[in-house]
Design a protein around this nucleic acid. Structure first.
Lengths: 346, 346
DNA sequence: CCTGCACTTGCACACGTGTTCATTCTACTA
DNA sequence: TAGTAGAATGAACACGTGTGCAAGTGCAGG
């Protein structure tokens, strides 16, 4: 039936036979156990190497109940922010002998269910979730498997659930502060995916900064987005129809901002003279659009790396239960400018 | 030691006991085998569901010698082109009950070795490689495991090795043709990673188009890059120092082009009046830089999806051994313009 | 010389599942 | 009624590895 040889890999018993010992001895020798004589150990290791023996993680996992595999659930790998996080997780995992099973469930509930089911079947040791809209489905499901669950940029109370995140309220605050310092008073927000914790927090932080200065974002200027360029374009078009329209728009993330930027240019407005725009994440391309995007930088790669660190600690029983919170910082580029005098009168 | 309950998942035997049957009967019932009585089958399925039984893919894999898992090796997930390919692979895999183990080896040989080793240990059913610089290491290593190896945008002769790719020579040809039709005669190329098959093919295709029109790219105008913005910047800076400098630059990919674009602007040149620039891949952001990038579009998502299709065919023994080649097409945007008259005299 | 300990190794079992084969039971046919 | 075919189920084994325990060897101390 199959095109491929079904000969199967050579097993530990084959090595044992070749070395003239029993298979437990081989097992111990390859694990560098002090229980086998140094000379024997060396000989077995040499023979195993010559035979090209590769132990089966499957069989090992069956007995040890550890697979050295973690599940990584993301909304979409196409988002550059997520990509960087994934890179951090994966590299750290590999460096520590772990593998990563990637699950790309596009915020579709049915797909989420399949992902969780698959990860359970594969008996992953832990799950890392880098998804904007978590909590609703995963976490209750994940909790009951009794394995560590580490959320990235999300929060959720409960057993076995930990989180690594940047302080989104702080990030939002930085933007609000920046807008104010440039003289803006008519400020709007294009949201992320519905129910995204991080989107609400960023908005809240921004509003706090404004309120401290006697300003606010009117509710009708909080328009829906989806974390993608499409949502940014739609949101910006909505806002541009207002009269007078906002002079500064804070976007849930850089991808949204790039979409919004496109809409603003299409409308014939001049950036940043007529309108200031800020994003969030500081993805690589934020510096390359025109005008370069003012944004809030979060340590994307580090975020992923740290999440894996925490996972390892949890698996090794070192009980690092404290959540990790990074502080973001503002990156000033050309997309935000002081409000022009004649408009400030308006 | 561990914080987490070691109670272990419930096994097929637990279900058997609860249903008052033997475990093979449960196994058959859940596989919907016609060997068990319809009534019994239904009862067992119900009980298994109520108990929340999830079969162990580990134990199953040990006996069936199939893990329903494929390895996906990439140079870096940070490249938007790769991200899209990964998305295509992953979604198709999930839809067919397969999982994807992601291996991000940054073109570092030692990391490549670890990846291959890990994938062997995990006994993946097949390996998909989306890496620009393959062949040197992987393929010989991968071949000897006797599992299907599917290369994306790469070629390599040998057993068990198949490929899905776009016609890079054709893509390069399209750019060459386009440059010529705009009147350009001084044309340069910024390469991708060293030894990248695709980079050489794109250059070759471009040169063919030029040669058909009595032109060529001089060797000293084929400058090295790395497939990242850094390489694009460096390459462009190198080319701008020439006098006279090229009027059109073809870049290995869009990321390279974005870097080059940055360098050109920094040099005070006007785009595209003073210099035309073309990329490759048509990543999402190519449309959003300034000026929007003329590029060659390849079906990134489809490429990944198709690679997984082929993998499934191979695993099911349907022997689809024919390589798949997609035809790319030109996407004209504002980064390429006709050569200005005074320059064409020069 | 005998006892006992340290060291080395093999035996046997377990992990959870799929599959082959034998067995039991039922119902139908000659 | 006896024989048999067929349906349903269980017993036993295999997959490849790790580990507790027993057994064997050699050496030192009493």
């Amino acid at each position: 039936m199959s095109l491929f040889p079904t000969e199967g890999n050579i097993s530990i018993k084959d090595v044992a036979k070749a070395a003239g010992v029993s298979h437990p001895t081989v097992s111990r020798a390859l694990a560098d156990s002090p229980l086998v004589a140094a000379e024997t150990k060396q000989r077995i290791q040499r023979i195993a190497g010559e035979m090209g023996y590769i132990p089966s993680a499957i069989a090992r996992g069956l007995v040890t109940k550890r697979t050295a595999t973690v599940g990584l659930v993301v909304t979409t790998i196409a988002d550059p922010f997520i990509s960087e996080v994934v890179r951090g997780v994966e590299e750290n995992a590999l460096d520590n002998g772990y593998s990563v099973i990637l699950c790309n469930c596009n915020a579709e509930p049915e797909r989420e269910l399949v992902c969780v089911r698959t990860l359970r079947e594969k008996r992953v040791d832990a799950v890392i979730v880098a998804s904007s809209r978590v909590g609703s489905l995963y976490v209750p499901l994940l909790q009951e498997l009794g394995i560590p669950v580490v959320l990235i940029n999300n929060q959720h109370e409960g057993h076995y659930v930990y989180s690594v995140r940047t302080d989104d309220r702080r990030g939002g605050y930085l933007i609000g502060e920046h807008f104010c310092s440039l003289g803006h008073r008519r400020i709007a927000y294009i949201s992320g995916p519905p129910n995204a914790h991080s989107s609400l927090d960023r908005l809240e932080g921004c509003r706090l900064a404004l309120q401290e200065r006697g300003l606010d974002i009117p509710d009708e200027w909080v328009v829906p987005g989806d974390g993608r360029t499409e949502g940014g374009e739609a949101g910006a078009n909505l806002l541009l129809r207002c009269s007078p329209h906002p002079t500064a728009i804070f976007c849930y993330n850089d991808v949204t901002a790039i979409g919004a930027l496109q809409a603003v240019k299409s409308a014939g407005l001049c950036m940043p003279a007529d309108l200031s725009l800020a994003g969030y994440d500081d993805i690589a391309f934020a510096a390359f659009v025109d005008p370069p995007l003012t944004t809030v930088a979060q340590a994307k790669y580090t975020l992923g790396q740290r999440a894996m660190d925490m996972t390892l600690s949890l698996l090794n029983g070192q009980g690092e239960t404290d959540d990790v919170v990074f502080t973001p910082h503002l990156v000033e580029r050309a997309s935000c400018a002081p409000i022009p005098p004649e408009v400030s009168q308006g």
